[in-house]
Design a binder for these strands. Structure first.
Lengths: 228, 228
DNA sequence: ACGGAATGTTCACCTTCGCTTAACACGACG
DNA sequence: CGTCGTGTTAAGCGAAGGTGAACATTCCGT
């Protein structure tokens, strides 16, 4: 299902190798790629090319990714351009700064081409299919983006598998409310699919592993809840 | 036991077939049905017809179900109308958004007529017999949240075990009323499960331990009551 | 199309704690 | 003084949930 709609991406990174690598992988998918190695050029290109998506390295000499992002958000006609940050997966929290700056997504370095291409395509698809009304749920230090299917726990960004994500989203839709097992089954699996007793437990366990034990509570005989 | 009380339902879905299917099944049960194929009409009809229940498809072109729901919740006189979402269980997570928007229940597509009618009838029954099992009971300084399964005594928040919670909820449903032991058994254990004489006493004792001796009274030979 | 990884489900335990009961104590009342 | 209804306590049982691993399925890159 290769779309016929414009798919133009602007890559910005000071390392040429990375630029080449990403360019190669995107072009392979028939995506139009422009690139810049610094913030200034990036802005110029963005204005002239009007890409659908800008991939910004956060760490760059001179104007860094966050600044470029801010500038883009301020430029008439580019406010809504999708922006993805490339974040070095180090100790520092620059990706959080990026989040504040209003990026639409984040990709960790070192970049894995497949993951990268997937993400880009997913994001491009979004621009096409009507304005991304980003639905976000937030409670108790956890923030879920229903659209990007991501979860941030304050110090990191997670990609939960589908079922876990659905389960967490359900619990978080009404923090504090106890969801009976049946409710959970009905909502997540549907009324006609039946899975074993222990299935929910296992997903709950995995969630607790990932977001912390204290965030999901058990009420014996009644169900589970997200701690408010 | 076909009720004589008004049972009016508003169906909202952009697909006519579904509308017809649901309408047919509801009318067969003697329920008055109105329908709309878009959010705008739905709101108009809701205002003029004041249905007891609104069934909203989440995914609709133009104003979607969540928006309609929000609007209804904001409309004087309709804030408490029961709302049921029809959720397509697809890739996206709009059904969760719907949950968050404050629907009263959810039905998964594809709809199975029997399940649907049952749910609608159950919900309608609810409106008649006093507002939707009002989610909070309060009396004599004790407040029970039936949704969160918690009890607050003014100075602390408790998590009662299931049976104790149910027992307290029963007593508090009519403060002052004396519940005969048989009534209690019937309500909490059901008519076919039999437990020993001392079982209730023990639960009562634990409750008294936790919420204070003076809150539950004994009427010898008669039963127990929650002190008003 | 193939094969391996990621995700989802089930199974066979284990642990925990709520529920129930048995045994006894106590006061009221005949 | 006996029995009736209830209070109290501790102990056993069992159901509900937790856990780890096996098994099944889906996804995805080659």
């Amino acid at each position: 299902m290769t779309s016929t709609i414009s798919r133009k991406v602007l890559l910005v990174d000071d390392e040429e190798d990375i630029l080449d690598l990403l360019r190669y992988n995107l072009e392979k998918e028939g995506i139009e790629v422009h690139s810049a190695t610094n913030g200034g050029d990036a802005l110029k290109l963005a204005k002239s090319e009007r890409p659908d998506l800008v991939v910004l390295d956060i760490m760059m000499p001179g104007m860094d990714g966050v600044e470029v992002c801010n500038e883009l958000r301020r430029t008439p006609g580019l406010e809504d351009t999708l922006i993805v940050f490339l974040t070095a997966r180090t100790e520092d929290y620059s990706h959080i700064a990026g989040y504040e700056a209003g990026g639409d997504d984040y990709i960790n370095k070192p970049v894995r081409p497949k993951v990268f291409v997937n993400k880009v395509q997913a994001l491009l698809k979004r621009t096409r299919s009507g304005q991304a009304v980003s639905k976000v749920i937030e409670a108790n230090g956890i923030r879920m983006d229903l659209e990007r299917i991501t979860v941030s726990t304050g110090n990191e960004m997670l990609q939960l598998p589908k079922k876990e994500f659905e389960l967490l989203a359900l619990l978080m839709s009404k923090p504090g409310k106890v969801f009976k097992r049946e409710e959970i089954y009905a909502q997540i699996w549907g009324n006609d699919i039946f899975v074993g007793d222990r299935t929910i437990d296992v997903h709950i366990r995995k969630l607790r592993e990932k977001i912390g034990d204290d965030r999901i509570g058990t009420v014996k005989g009644m169900g589970y809840k997200f701690e408010a």
